[in-house]
């Protein structure tokens, strides 16, 4: 099983600005002063040894979209944020061998940042393609959201005019399904208008997609239910948009969680890897790297023996499970 991240921002896409690129180039050149760089190979080595992730790359700016590439003959994608555009382009450029043009979308919910990529998903325009939009919200609610964003005066092509065949599939929270040869378990989450997490399992590997989920920690039963949902997962993708202090104070009831709660739940669930996700659009690359360093340190001081590996999801990241 392989997990590909196409969009990792929360709330709104946040592209790197020209000034941001310029600052990175300047910092890199300053670091290169006095280095013996006489060939492209020297430069490659210098970049690998001396420039950290934020210095030479970016976490990206697209909103939520994650592909679960399993041993299936159809595609599985979580959420249709702006990252869905690049996912669609990739399929158009290089279709995965052995996969039909059938796309199983799993919707955490239909807030705008999780559906805004759909009008730019090229495969949706192609007759013969089939798109199944799975979700635990009432199908009528999901349909309305997709229709509304893709109709006048917001968009020139109506949702109903798309060339592909689009079906909505009603799922229920707290149930397990076999979809496209993968076991999919659903879980209700605390978020404005509700949201749902999905646990995908196949061939002894598992990944949990749990975004837009506030953990208020006011109910032991609720906490235990999430620990059970994450239990033993090879990867947990977790909404860590805010600091714990913000999540408990000024941003209480805004529907998101923190890196601290992410680590604690994953440790107690014996999960193997944690990917921080749904990054604040106001966080730049340096800030996100600092949050990752902090989170790794917190993992160490809270329960050094847990063996939990912490990473920050970025657009383009691939994790093999």
């Amino acid at each position: 099983m392989l997990v590909r991240f196409f969009g990792t921002r929360g709330s709104l896409p946040a592209p790197l600005s020209g000034a941001g690129v310029k600052a990175k180039i300047r910092d890199a050149l300053v670091k290169a002063i006095g280095q013996d760089l006489t060939s492209p190979e020297d430069v490659d080595r210098f970049m690998a040894d001396s420039l950290d992730f934020a210095a030479q790359s970016t976490y990206g700016g697209d909103s939520s979209c994650v592909e679960i590439d399993a041993d299936t003959d159809s595609y599985i994608v979580c959420d249709a944020g702006s990252g869905l555009r690049e996912f669609g382009n990739r399929v158009m450029r290089a279709p995965a061998p052995g996969k039909q043009k059938v796309f199983n979308l799993f919707m955490s919910h239909v807030h705008w940042d999780h559906i805004m990529g759909f009008p730019f998903f090229v495969p949706a325009y192609i007759p013969g393609n089939r798109i199944l939009i799975h979700g635990c919200h009432d199908v009528a609610v999901m349909k309305e959201a997709f229709n509304r964003q893709q109709s006048a005066p917001c968009f020139p092509v109506n949702f109903g005019q798309l060339g592909s065949t689009i079906e909505f599939v009603q799922l229920e929270a707290g149930k397990r399904y076999d979809i496209a040869g993968v076991s999919v378990t659903t879980k209700a989450q605390n978020h404005s208008g509700d949201s749902y997490g999905y646990r995908f399992e196949q061939n002894g590997r598992s990944v949990v997609y749990s975004t837009d989920s506030e953990h208020k920690l006011d109910s032991l039963d609720e906490t235990d239910a999430f620990i059970a949902f994450f239990h033993g997962a090879d990867l947990v993708i977790f909404d860590a948009m805010y600091s714990l202090a913000d999540a408990f104070s000024i941003k209480e009831d805004w529907g998101h969680s923190s890196n601290i709660v992410a680590v604690e739940l994953c440790q107690r669930a014996d999960a193997k890897r944690l990917a921080l996700f749904h990054h604040d659009p106001n966080s730049d690359d340096v800030t996100l790297s600092k949050i990752l360093d902090d989170t790794i340190r917190f993992e160490d001081i809270s329960d050094a023996g847990s063996g939990l590996e912490v990473m920050t999801a970025y657009d383009g990241l691939e994790v093999t499970l």
């Binding site: 600091s243 714990l244 202090a245 408990f248 601290i260 989170t295 340190r297 917190f298 001081i301 809270s302």
Partner: peptide, 15 residues
């Protein structure tokens, strides 16, 4: 020291 770090990482030192 460890509790101080938890306060800093969680940003509780601000609230």
């Amino acid at each position: 020291p460890v509790v101080k770090e938890v306060f800093e990482i969680s940003r509780f030192n601000y609230v």
